[in-house]
Design a protein around this nucleic acid. Structure first.
Length: 575
DNA sequence: GCCGTTTTCGGCCCGACTGTTTTCAGTCG
């Protein structure tokens, strides 16, 4: 997988550099597209190349003859001449500024040519001393906008984890939809697509009196800065951190606008290309044949006029969903309503704050059939991992509670540590007493490749799920070294499920791996990893990841009835 | 640089906004 990411980065840098150098825009977008394709490409390009050479590489969408040669060169020699050549003409440090609002390649090139600007530092200098403002085509307002952009960039350069945006969006939507003028409202953008992180938050609504709606919006509690407020668009910073935009559009184009602002950009480009071939034009105002509107009130209109099924937002990444919609073979995606339980929750026995009784109550309150109580195992001292004796006491308590409980059940489980040699932190006779065993790596040496540990753990028939398989934390920690291709293959072979850990900072497995796992028939188990009641809602984030991974009900254990889960885990134990 | 039941050459998504201009370039989503 590593090579895909590196090539993705290389092509992206080439694109930025070519942009800076004023190359043919279509060539630039070809590199951007190739970069994007590789970012999400499910197979290691190195594997593709070893298997079928340059010809095989050209079968990757967006990769043609020229780029295949460059990829091959890189794989063979570890270098790419085109990259080196282009990079030498465009200072990397400067190109970082392309991410800043109001700064683009032309501005940078201008500063480079006329003011010998070579670095971010140089750029800040010519910004401050007024020399940039004096250049032709520039001016004081432009420079002010760039200064604002730079300030915002430095404060908010990181994307926001979806789980942090979630409550903010819910609350804001609730506030706005209460206004009498508002007819329909929806979040859009990467939030609606349930991407694991979001850049800013986009909300769209339709109604009368846009200025009143916007005015209400920009004065909501928690807003710390108003960036703009007109009749159709308001833009604010919430809590000094989150940029949030609200747009008000006419009812007749609400669907088209919703589709448009939901993206992704690549998805929309694909749709527009199809539309064009049919003599149609799609914009955020609707779908048009010549000047005549042929749809746009409902989001479905946009897809319908192209002869496509409506595509769920989570799939809109131009990763095959348009083709699937055309062939009427879109997946029946799993939904939040399908969740019959949570498959990874901690209790007070280890490092959680909740009692078994409270968890059972919560199981009922959420209309679940079950919650799997998976506390840490004895080696996890930092998390108050359970000694065997305590674990057995917990199992007995769960048995009693379940006996008295109608409907809702707790699954007696553990999140057992996978030890450095791949063995498990409890002996088999202990694990046999448990209904649901998820195994996880919690400690590893720097640079250690943990693949063999996970593969070994999956060989145990007593392990049902591998929890947070890559160990990454979205905001703070890289994944450990692990060959996920082998893990997923082994999971298929041993019928071990892989977890979609739904805790907002994990979302591990991530969507790309989920999709690959699903394709190999691997089952997924969504668990919130909640340590208190207030974290159980995150199951919604896990469902989002599953949907982005094209999962249907049979793929996800949580959609199964209690009895089915029990039967499945037993079967695995008896192999 | 990519791509093809309209094309192997000539296209490549589209519109708005802003600021600088006097008809348009740059940037954004």
């Amino acid at each position: 997988m590593g090579k895909n990411k590196i090539l993705c980065e290389i092509f992206s840098q080439i694109a930025d550099a070519l942009d800076f150098l004023g190359e043919n825009p279509f060539k630039i977008s070809a590199y951007r597209k190739a970069s994007r394709v590789l970012e999400d490409y499910p197979t290691d390009v190195e594997e593709v190349y070893r298997g079928g050479g340059i010809t095989a590489l050209t079968s990757i969408p967006g990769i043609g003859a020229a780029m295949s040669k460059k990829i091959a060169e890189f794989l063979e020699t570890g270098r790419m001449r085109k990259y080196e050549e282009v990079i030498s003409q465009a200072p990397q440090d400067l190109l970082k500024l392309m991410d800043v609002q109001s700064i683009g390649p032309k501005t940078l090139k201008l500063a480079y040519d006329r003011l010998s600007v070579r670095s971010v530092q140089d750029f800040k200098r010519v910004l401050a001393d007024g020399s940039l403002a004096d250049l032709p085509g520039m001016g004081h307002k432009k420079v002010e906008n760039i200064k604002d952009g730079l300030e915002l960039y430095e404060r908010m350069s990181e994307r926001i984890p979806l789980g942090l945006a979630f409550p903010i969006v819910q609350e804001t939507v609730r506030e706005i939809e209460q206004l009498p003028q508002v007819k329909s409202i929806s979040a859009c953008g990467s939030f609606r697509r349930m991407k694991e992180t979001v850049g800013d938050i986009d909300i769209l609504c339709t109604g009368d009196g846009g200025d009143k709606i916007i005015d209400h919006f920009v004065h909501l509690p928690g807003i710390t800065r108003i960036l703009g407020a007109g009749e159709t668009k308001g833009s604010v910073i919430f809590s000094d951190r989150y940029q949030m935009d609200l747009r008000v559009v006419p009812t007749g184009s609400y669907g088209a606008a919703l589709q448009y602002f939901t993206g992704s950009k690549q998805h929309n480009i694909h749709l527009r290309t199809i539309a064009k071939g049919r003599g149609l034009k799609i914009s955020e105002y609707g779908v048009f044949r010549e000047e005549e509107s042929v749809g746009g009130r409902e989001e479905q209109d946009v897809y319908r006029v192209l002869g496509l099924r409506w595509i769920p937002p989570e799939l809109r990444e131009d990763l095959g969903e348009v083709e699937a919609a055309a062939a009427d073979s879109l997946p029946q995606l799993i939904q939040s309503d399908d969740m019959k339980g949570d498959l990874h929750v901690h209790s007070r026995y280890s490092d959680g704050t909740v009692t078994l009784e409270e968890l059972l109550d919560e199981t009922r309150r959420r209309r679940y059939q079950y919650i799997a109580v998976c506390d840490h195992s004895r080696s996890a001292k930092y998390a108050r991992g359970l000694e065997v004796e305590t674990l057995m006491e917990k199992v007995e308590n769960i048995r009693k509670l379940n006996e008295e409980s109608k409907g809702a059940k707790l699954l007696a489980g553990t999140e057992v540590d996978i030890l450095p040699n791949g063995s498990l932190d409890y002996p088999d006779e202990v694990l046999k007493e448990l209904v649901f065993v998820i195994a996880a790596i919690h400690s590893w040496r720097k640079e250690e490749d943990v693949t063999h540990r996970i593969l070994t753990a999956m060989e145990s028939p007593l392990v049902h799920v591998i929890a947070h398989p890559t160990g990454r934390l979205i905001s703070t920690r890289q994944a450990y070294q692990v060959d996920m291709d082998r893990v997923i293959e082994k999971a298929a072979q041993t019928e071990t499920a892989l977890e979609i850990n739904a805790y907002y900072d994990r979302l591990d497995l991530s969507d790309t791996y989920v999709r690959r796992a699903k394709e190999l028939g691997v089952k997924l188990a969504i668990g919130t990893d909640a340590h208190n009641i207030g974290q159980l809602w995150m199951i919604a984030l896990g469902v989002g990841v599953a949907r982005r991974g094209w999962c249907e009900r049979p793929d996800v254990l949580n959609s199964w009835d209690y009895e089915q889960i029990i039967q499945w885990t037993r079967q695995k134990g008896q192999r």
